[in-house]
Nucleic acid binder design. Structure first.
Length: 275
DNA sequence: AACGCGCCCTGTCCGC
DNA sequence: TGCGGACAGGGCGCGT
């Protein structure tokens, strides 16, 4: 569910709320959320301190004050329906708990996930560094330039919509923001990535950044499941121009928005504005 | 190597 | 009201 703006919103919440917090105990309720041995996961985090919270691609990365060797990074990928909720002392626990982190101050950090497509991984600093190195450019970083985007697309014959969602080249863009960025850029989602013209990649570079920045400002897009760390919905859904709007008029020209399927995912676009 | 597809899982919504 | 099918923000592993 969550793309870069949603993960960034949660990370900023967590940074404010739990940086420096001490974990007392951890309970893995659903073992299939953890790749490693759940007992090792629980023991390694018990008594550890959350030193820093950052985002890389669509991952929440917590730097852990190491109690156990090889357990310096807690990396959380939310999949489609994962949530990381900070629960107050008296707060009732929601349904579908996945992993419960009891903090020393009485609050709980709860990983909740209805569909369980998410993953929590406890890794060494080196293991995380090599995982991170395999991920593409951060679209809001200085390295993401129009030239970089143009260069990266050159040899690919994949449709640009599908290309944008591949986390090995540029990260953080998922199904919603790929459609939205392409609409703003006036580029057809079906066009082969390698055939985009210079002016198209330049425009797309700009619209990717703009749509992600704006969505962060509105604390993400909630269609159904997404919630921030306080359990609140994001406000960007009302700003979507094409996503989930099949049959409705294009905000620019009035043509009916179309839905097509690419790589088994829905794509929304305006057949008039996007050629 | 790059690409396309199926699959992981549960819930909701829509048409009959 | 019940039921089957389609669909949902992601990512991995497989076969070609």
């Amino acid at each position: 569910m969550p793309e870069l703006p949603e993960v960034e919103t949660i990370v900023r919440d967590l940074r404010r709320l739990v940086t420096g917090a001490q974990v007392r105990t951890v309970v893995v309720v659903r073992g299939d959320l953890i790749d490693s041995d759940p007992a090792w996961f629980e023991q390694s985090l018990a008594g550890a301190r959350i030193e820093q919270v950052t985002r890389r691609a669509k991952n929440i990365v917590m730097k852990i004050g190491a109690v156990a060797p090889g357990a310096e990074r807690l990396v959380i990928n939310l999949g489609m329906t994962g949530r990381v909720l900070v629960l107050g002392v008296d707060a009732a626990e929601p349904s579908h708990p996945g992993v419960r982190f009891q903090l020393e101050d009485g609050r709980r950090l709860l990983y909740q996930d209805v569909r369980r497509f998410g993953r929590l991984q406890l890794l060494s600093g080196e293991a995380w560094a090599s995982r991170s190195a395999a991920l593409g450019l951060e679209p809001l970083s200085d390295e993401f330039t129009p030239e970089a985007l143009h260069g990266l697309t050159r040899r690919s014959r994949v449709a640009i919509k599908t290309w944008l969602m591949d986390q090995r080249r540029v990260v953080g863009v998922g199904n919603i923001y790929a459609s939205e960025a392409l609409f703003r850029a006036g580029v057809s989602p079906r066009k082969a990535a390698g055939r985009l013209l210079r002016r198209e990649t330049t425009r797309l570079h700009e619209t990717i950044r703009a749509v992600l920045d704006e969505a962060i400002e509105f604390r993400g897009t909630t269609l159904l499941d997404y919630r921030d760390a306080a359990g609140e919905r994001g406000g960007f859904a009302l700003r979507l121009e094409v996503y989930d709007r099949a049959g409705k008029p294009c905000p620019a020209c009035g043509t009916a928005i179309r839905r097509i399927v690419q790589g088994a995912r829905s794509t929304f676009f305006c057949p008039t504005c996007q050629r």
